[in-house]
Design a binder for these strands. Structure first.
Lengths: 123, 123, 123, 123
DNA sequence: GTGGTCTAGACCACG
DNA sequence: GTGGTCTAGACCACT
């Protein structure tokens, strides 16, 4: 379900956070579904439990999961809200990049190309 | 000319690199113009000279400036090439974000809003 | 494994970079293998850790190694590409020297001698 | 006769040394011919006289020129010897590069290509 | 004066 | 334990 890339420069806990968040936002992990326990996931991924612990803490801070003491960790019920919030984030990131691109003389055609279905191919 | 934000998580030397590169790419620092000396800029920004040195070394590596012992640091002549390369980078970054946005259900209208002149305002 | 020559005019960090790169390109350090830690190598060579750090940073920039916080530095997987690139570099360097040699009246026999198995002995 | 490239990372005095040495080795500056005075060359190139002084000192150390106090600087009479020495130098440099290339798996065909008349074109 | 290298010692983030 | 950043202060080469 989750894969760690040891060649990735990003910290391991961050890889876990991003993958779980992504799965939850896309609905692959439905609201209320239970996550593997810290220990279990640590064993599965051959990772220090502290690292998983930290990832779960970060996910809880972001509102992606909630911890029920003694029962486990579960995907939050408010994923729709989080999805909207994430989309706003992406929007402002794109906006900032667009500003930069315009300052460097990008044409409208280029901008349109980047957001078209085959965006990458037009680069 | 350059401002350091200590609340920014990014390292100081990287902030210096990005700001100088941005100024050079936009033409605010014309090709051949001399940068402040390592020591002088260090005093201006109340930063250790080693940190400025590191920033200048990185800028030279990127081809934005060239350094000459005993003379100083100067803006490179090939900014046009670097500008094109940077635009391609921005394009692929936007492309990646667009893919993410679509996966989360972003509409075409939203995407168009983000790249419109008032992109930020529409987020 | 690595030796510093203090009589060499080249900076220490550059000597480290070149030796590690050479070992990696020749396959003496296989892809994925872990390098000594910054501190450990610093002790081994009786050098300041900052200097080793700088060497490792340069190696990462060249794509020879990759670094992961809290885990260590590892030899990159794409050594084949880097080997090809390095060969092209050597080729153009030899080409430039050959041009110089011809301008000074070198004979074809001399050139052939230099690239023969016992090249050094014929000089 | 001599051109300084301020965008070159190499120190100015070294550029002067190399160009004079090259002209002398190729015979463009015949043995016994007089060089411009330190002051005159400094004015011509818009360079600090100290820099020219240093270049001439290095050229004398290498035996390329000799200084006659009060009369000026002149190209050495032993250029043939220096030319031979320089060729030996180039030979050993090529030899070292060839060793490196072989260690990285270069074929004999590649080596031959690099020293052929159109060496660069084959790279 | 300029840039470049090195040392010593500190602090932070990650596992 | 690991790597990454920063400061302080020194020395060298070049103009």
């Amino acid at each position: 379900m989750i894969r760690i890339d040891y060649r990735d420069a990003r910290p391991i806990y961050e890889q876990v956070v991003d993958q779980v968040e992504s799965l939850a936002l896309r609905g692959a992990l439905p609201s209320g579904s239970q996550l593997p326990s810290v220990r279990q996931l640590a064993v599965e991924l051959s990772i220090n439990p502290n690292t998983i612990q930290r990832a779960y803490a970060e996910l809880e801070r972001r509102g992606v999961i909630y911890a029920a003491k003694g029962r486990g960790n579960f995907i939050s019920d408010d994923m729709a809200v989080l999805r909207t919030r994430r989309l706003e984030e992406i929007g402002s990131q794109i906006g900032a990049l667009v500003v930069q691109a315009r300052a460097l003389g990008a044409t409208e055609a280029q901008l349109q190309g980047w957001i078209s279905e085959k965006g990458e191919g037009m680069a």
